[in-house]
């Protein structure tokens, strides 16, 4: 029997008059890598934020391991969130803490481990993301790709059951982007966790995904295995995966030329219009 880690049931979310997710239902299989693709601005980040309870849906339910997180009190939600590790678009490392303390942060807050044990875990996680020995660097001294790797190390620190990636490839050059995909695949081999990845990087999507969910115009228009999606004749899918620019994919993401992401297309971008 297939087990589902996440189950969205008829989820509806709007900001004011702008409907972002309209009656979205989808299930994400436990222990697999599911990639959510779709043009920018369709609500992929909103999807993730609903999943971790940073936003509340207007209606519908979101089950995490069978538990509806939309009905939980704050303290219960904090408990559920310990199942999650999340890699944010730019890593979201704390600027004032060095790399080691960033990775140690969730460990210090949620475990009773001794400092020595924590530093051992930090070392292991840094090895795992391919950045050994950078414990004492500050986030500002790292490149964008390195920050993402450290962000991943932090997300992995508590060995979460579900790991979320918000556009791990955006703003990276093709080589670094491929390296991150390989890292995701390698990390997947190490853990039994469920991976949920948001991505614009089309070849990468097929490389890492077990399942693909396509969001388009506020709705799920397709969900299935890589093969099913690749062989689909749905016109939007065909266009999207052939990189046809007739549908509005944000060029900044696709070319990876601009790394102004937090300033241009961050989650709050909709509020930019003063």
């Amino acid at each position: 029997m297939v087990e589902y880690a996440v189950d969205f049931k008829n989820v509806h979310k709007a900001f004011g008059k702008q409907v972002v997710l309209n009656d979205v239902s989808c299930r994400i299989e436990k222990g697999k890598t599911t990639v959510i693709v779709g043009p920018s601005g369709t609500g992929k980040s909103v999807f993730l934020k609903l999943l971790v309870g940073l936003l509340k849906p207007d209606s519908g339910s979101i089950l995490v391991d069978g538990r509806d997180i939309t009905q939980l009190k704050k303290s219960e939600l904090f408990e559920v969130r310990k199942k999650f590790g999340m890699l944010f678009q730019d890593g979201a490392l704390f600027d004032s803490l060095d790399v080691a303390e960033n990775i140690a942060f969730p460990l210090r807050r949620h475990t009773r481990l001794k400092n020595k044990e924590i530093m051992k875990i930090v070392e292991d996680k840094l090895d795992q993301v391919g950045l050994p020995g950078i414990q004492h660097k500050l986030p500002s001294e790292l490149s964008g790709g390195m920050r993402k790797r450290v962000g991943l190390a932090r997300a992995l620190a508590l060995d979460p059951e579900i790991i979320l990636f918000d556009e791990p490839n955006s703003g990276l050059d093709p080589v670094m982007s491929d390296a991150i995909d390989k890292l995701i695949i390698r990390t997947k081999e190490h853990t039994k966790s469920t991976f949920i990845v948001i991505s614009h990087d089309i070849p990468g999507t097929f490389q890492i995904a077990d399942h693909i969910i396509m969001l388009y115009k506020s709705q799920v228009i397709a969900a299935g295995t890589c093969e099913e999606i690749q062989n689909s004749t749905h016109p939007v899918l065909v266009q999207f995966f052939s990189r046809n620019s007739d549908i509005p994919i944000d060029q900044n993401y696709v070319t990876g030329k601009l790394d102004l992401r937090p300033y241009v297309t961050g989650e709050l971008a909709g509020e930019d219009a003063d």
Partner: peptide, 18 residues
Amino acid sequence: ATMRVKEQIDALEVMSVD
């Protein structure tokens, strides 16, 4: 504000830190 803009406040929340 910088922490908000760089999603660090969201990161805190996701790490179950108020």
